[in-house]
């Protein structure tokens, strides 16, 4: 049975997602509940030798609406460890994933004589959790980072069903403006398409780990640029930096238009 009135506004108007409304053969319009939406935003992560930075903008959108200018996307997975997780995509799933990870890390601690979960263990756990929801995926793109037992930076990125690289990565980006940011990071972190000046384009510029000041600049540049070109990115930029001395957070302004 279908009823011939419109849905109240606010539920189906999504810019990058839309509610499927199909015409069945009988000429009736069939509405179906779409359990997903996209709340926009972008995250990035960059590693140095012994530090790692995760950052995300703080705009939360539904379609063309800005719901909030201050919703954070980067989470610490405990107060006394180096684990940080950034999630982007569908806001509700993203928060659920983050909460699940916080809970797992906390449980691990209590079940292992107050030992903290290693970053590689957290990485595998996140993959297992996401894949456990393979047939009703969490629409959340994750970047997980932390320091390993030797104090080296580790960074992992995931798709929504949990595939990731155990080796980790030097940089990652996910979310609505990731396609704008990834090539920038390729060039600036991995030095892709950069050559030693005297070699006439024959010798690639050697890749060296970045220092914290450069990384901080890259993060801010990436987001100011993404804010210019993508409507779902802006308002504020949350930056979490993990070093051997601890975890620090900073929020800076982005353009609000």
């Amino acid at each position: 049975m279908s009823l011939p009135f419109m849905q109240p506004l606010g539920y189906d108007q999504s810019y990058s997602f839309h509610t499927p409304t199909s015409k069945a053969s009988g000429g009736y319009t069939q509405h179906s509940f779409n359990p997903y939406t996209d709340n926009g935003g972008t995250i990035i992560g960059i590693t140095g030798e012994d530090f790692v930075v995760l950052a995300g903008d703080t705009r939360h959108t539904s379609g063309y609406n800005i719901n909030s200018r201050t919703e954070k996307k980067v989470y610490r997975l405990g107060e006394d460890n180096s684990l940080v997780l950034a999630t982007v995509g569908f806001g509700a799933d993203s928060k659920d994933v983050a909460e699940t990870m916080m809970r797992a890390v906390n449980d691990f601690k209590f079940n292992h004589n107050l030992k903290n979960m290693s970053v590689s263990a957290a990485a595998q756990y996140l993959s297992t959790f996401l894949y456990g929801n393979r047939f009703f995926p969490k629409y959340a793109n994750c970047v997980l980072a932390g320091l390993d037992k030797d104090g080296r930076a580790r960074l992992y990125s995931y798709d929504s069903v949990g595939s990731y690289s155990k080796q980790g990565e030097s940089r990652a980006s996910a979310g609505s403006a990731s396609s704008l940011i990834v090539p920038f990071l390729d060039n600036q972190v991995e030095f892709k398409n950069q050559f030693v000046p005297s070699s006439k384009g024959q010798e690639e510029r050697p890749v060296v780990p970045l220092d914290p000041v450069t990384v901080a600049k890259l993060v801010k540049d990436a987001f100011t640029s993404a804010t210019e070109r993508h409507i779902e990115v802006g308002d504020g930029l949350q930056i979490i930096t993990v070093t051997k001395d601890g975890v620090s957070e900073e929020v800076v302004d982005l353009k609000k238009d």
Partner: peptide, 25 residues
């Protein structure tokens, strides 16, 4: 703070749902 049928949650000092998200916000 706001929560909707999908479980989407967010908070802001001024909020409006439905049509108000367009007209009142």
């Amino acid at each position: 703070a706001s929560a909707d049928l999908l479980g989407t949650t967010f908070s802001a000092p001024a909020l409006a749902t439905g049509f108000g998200a367009h007209l009142a916000v």
